[in-house]
């Protein structure tokens, strides 16, 4: 379980439309808890679409549902998570004198939940 992935949180259309329905509503919560992963990485790690994984950064951990990214969208080693509460829980408080925590390109570990 110990190889390091790089996690990129970002916007998606669905993250944006469900945000307007409400951040506390089921659709937004579902979208922001869906982790997109390169299909090769999923095979290598024995994860199939819809399975739950735990993502751990130096600062926090969250449990997410894994989904295969479209072929070619994510290179091996890169993970994508729509912005929301879970992606923010992986950030640290340190901002390196900028006011901005490292919010993209975070080192994380991935563990399949049984």
């Amino acid at each position: 379980m110990d190889d390091i992935f790089i996690l990129i949180p970002g916007r998606t259309s669905r993250q944006g439309t469900t945000l307007n329905e409400g951040k506390l509503k089921a659709d937004f919560i579902e979208e922001t808890q869906t982790l997109f992963m390169c299909p090769d990485d999923m095979t290598r790690r024995g994860v199939v679409d819809g399975e739950r994984v735990r993502i751990r950064s130096e600062f926090g951990q969250v449990e997410l549902t894994c989904k295969a990214a479209k072929t070619g969208e994510l290179p091996p080693g890169l993970l994508f998570l729509p912005y929301g509460d879970p992606s923010s829980r992986l950030m640290g408080g340190e901002t390196h004198c900028t006011g901005m925590p490292d919010s993209k390109g975070m080192d994380v570990q991935l563990e399949k939940l049984l």
Binding site: G93, E94, T95, G99
Partner: peptide, 13 residues
């Protein structure tokens, strides 16, 4: 002063 007076910092510290 970003890093000092920015909200992420004033809260996290």
């Amino acid at each position: 002063n970003p890093g000092e007076f920015t909200t992420s910092d004033t809260l996290a510290r």
